[in-house]
Amino acid sequence: MNGNAIEVLDLVKRYGNVTALAGVTFSVSRGEIFGLLGPNGAGKTTTIKILTGLTPPTSGRAYVAGFDVVRQPNEVKRRVGWVSSEVILDDDLNAWENLELQARLQGVRNWRERATELLKYFDLLQSAGRPVGGYSTGMRKKLEIATALLHSPEILFLDEPTIGLDVNARAMLWDLIRTVNREFGVTILLTTHYMEEADALCNRVAIINLGKIMALGSPAELKSSVGGEVVELEIERPVDLSALKRLPDVLDVAASDGKIRITVRKADETIPAIVKSLDFSAVKSLKVEKPTLDTVFMKLTGKRIEESHVDYRRFYAMIRRSRR
């Protein structure tokens, strides 16, 4: 067993004849923010359920914090925190009481100190005595992350952390996830179907669709795998492109009705050379198109992430039927 935080080997999960995971393999190093990016129904939540010991895999192996999730579930559970996509807190209890319950479930001694520290850190100390039912969505999310961190887990699982949040709350949460990763030294595995989120937060991303990993790498690696960035020039009159085509970083040049599309590895670095290599007085405008993770997803699956969501209700109805 090496020192990876998470090690997943050929994980398969079937619900009756519905295959939720069709052989997934990846590993997450300690201290990393790792993202599972994919549409709803891709198998992201199923992966988290297996890794947190909520459900056993049909086949395959998974090690979390060095322990087998099937054979040593309690060792795993002591070392991981889990934040669900829907906020799960007891609305009748206040923040202290929710934290105390978590402390007792995890067997944390001296939880008050740690809880005070977390409430302070998450800016919830003032409202900690009020029943959670009256909290805003952002506050509830923060409190849920605080409860998940109470027992100082090595690994934090965040299932769709910003789903249903407004733009401000999302920005706040992104910052929070980064600082939690940095300051608490927690490895984070998050799932998301927002490509900007995976791009902004994750050191590495696995793109997952229909229970299979389609690609895995840093966001930059994944994006460069689709063939670079495009510099598009709008021109007033034909220009000589021969010097442009000879530039070493230019991968492709395509000219059509008043537009030149130049594919390059890195637009920021190549634009000065492009400007020098042609008569720039003919250029009306310049536009840079950088590939996003959605471009990557589209190249791999032929669809956008937004178009690929599996209809949840049909999916679960299918699972229920097949269980009988």
Binding site: D90, D92, L93, E97, L101, R104, L105, G107, P131
Partner: peptide, 22 residues
Amino acid sequence: MSGLGAFWGLYKREVVKIYRRA
């Protein structure tokens, strides 16, 4: 083991809910 602590935490929750939901 942690069983007793977990029971106590969960039982306290039930009791708090009794009087919060009068």
